[in-house]
Design a protein around this nucleic acid. Sequence first.
DNA 1: AAAATTTTCAACCGCAGAGAC
DNA 2: AGTCTCTGCGGTTGAAAATTT
Length: 310
Amino acid sequence: MGGGGGRAPCCDKSKVKRGPWSPAEDVRLVSFIQKHGHPNWRSLPKQAGLLRCGKSCRLRWINYLRPDLKRGNFTPQEEHSIIRLHATYGNKWSKIASHLPGRTDNEIKNVWNTHLKKRSLVIDNTTNYNDTNKNQREDVPKISNGQEISEGTIIDQPSTPSSTISCNSDQDNGNKACCSWDSTTTTTTTPCQYYETIRINNQEIPLESEVEFWNMLESSHQPITDDEHDHELGVVGPINKPSSCKDRDMEVEYWVRLLEEELELVSPTPDNKDIEQTQNNKDVHEMWCKTLSDQISPFWPTSPMNNGFF
DNA sequence: AAAATTTTCAACCGCAGAGAC
DNA sequence: AGTCTCTGCGGTTGAAAATTT
């Protein structure tokens, strides 16, 4: 390591927000990365209008917002793999994560510490994964044609990224879980197509993806231009968006606006009668949750349909 | 039903590696 | 060669949720 003479802090901690991320921040981060990628985490928060340090943005993206993440509980097969891999690699969580597409090192670390550590003491580590009955395995990773990705398959980066965005997992070896999106249609009026792909044996294969989620967000590149909100978040200026996505922009902007109002980041929209007429915060919350659940993908990490809302 | 305790997991912290200058 | 910045990693924390008493 280089250095010496003391290390400058990554950011001024007195000027950045900490703690749990709000849905509004998530939207900002995702929509910014969707359009601009993340060439520089340090400068990203300012460019995206987020009062967060770059490290926090990176962590949020990698551990929670990346589109190639699996959601939900670990399957018994995944748990088995973790136990077996831990016996090989020890606490090298990123190494273990590289064998489990869609799972993060942090997630694996948590599940190990909370569930598997004790269990691993009583499980016979010599059990061969391939000995299990595949017909009983429920959540084996699949590619778009339904074919299972067998354990041990080398998954690496696509040879030619299909857009300016890349999102690689952080592993330091060559076997990287990877996704990419084709942003070539972002200036058309048709819903944008996003593909998550993996490269297996020199063949690029699209994964089953959360297309609706990304389509929903594809036109939300522009930060909300509300003065109060922008001032609070330190927005440096609007980001140009394709005019052809206007309708979808309005839709996304509508529910983002509801979100901001619920969070009291901005005052209620004058013409939003439903919200104005509802005095009880609980009612507002429930109505708002329903609005969101009607409009956004259930895969959205903080979706009320995903039991992760608030 | 309420309080106490335990569990979960998102987020933070500091360190180290790599690369740029 | 030395310094600095950025990024990634693994350990830890603490608030919220779940469970037990």
